[in-house]
């Protein structure tokens, strides 16, 4: 018998006669997004800030200028579809990366990249030491269930909550290990 068949047979023997259970889903889900409710932008900004990331809330028209100000003289990767000219091409020598995102979660201060247009490859948002992410207010949802509902599992996804960190030394959080040490977020309203 192949390992596959044997494991499946063992499983069937093990659970034979066991009862199945209903899954109670009494937790919060399906909450309205920003636009339908007030306050998600503020909550998101506050929660991102809690991770010691830098947050700017900026009217849409002023976003390009804000990006310029944030990037300063950095050599940054600008992924396809971001809509900004003059990016740096070499991953190994880039100082940073600027991206959009797929969805953002207010309650946890999380941004999620699905690496679609404007979001770069997984490596592009990982290797450079600085990540600037532009989040549109209408991309902000209340919590994790609302984010999961919006995402496409067929795409690779990267959930980012603050800069890279470790709690491995005495369980104290220290920012900056292998991922970008600086995360900056512009919320476009």
């Amino acid at each position: 018998m192949s390992a596959r068949e044997e494991i499946l047979a063992r499983v069937r023997r093990a659970v034979a006669g066991a009862e199945d259970v209903e899954i109670p889903r009494g937790y919060r889900a399906g909450r309205p997004a920003e636009g339908a409710v007030e306050g998600l932008v503020e909550l998101f900004a506050e929660r991102v800030d809690d991770y010691r990331a830098v947050v700017h809330v900026v009217p849409a028209a002023e976003v390009p200028a804000k990006i310029d100000a944030c990037l300063g003289g950095r050599r940054v990767i600008v992924p396809d579809g971001f809509g900004r000219a003059g990016g740096w091409d070499d991953l190994d020598t880039a100082d940073g990366v600027v991206t959009t995102c797929a969805v953002a979660i207010a309650e946890t201060g999380t941004i999620v990249l699905d690496h679609g247009p404007g979001q770069g490859t997984r490596a592009q948002t990982l290797v450079p030491d600085y990540h600037l992410c532009v989040v549109r207010a209408d991309q902000i949802v209340a919590g994790v269930p609302e984010a999961v509902a919006r995402l496409d599992p067929a795409r690779p996804l990267t959930w980012i909550s603050g800069p890279s960190a470790t709690s491995d030394i005495e369980l104290n959080r220290v920012e900056g290990v292998h991922g970008p040490r600086t995360l900056e977020v512009i919320i476009s309203t």
Partner: peptide
């Protein structure tokens, strides 16, 4: 934490 810094999800062979 409310969320850990990074969560990666992938389906099959990617990139």
């Amino acid at each position: 934490e409310r969320m850990n810094p990074y969560t990666s999800m992938w389906t099959g062979a990617v990139e």
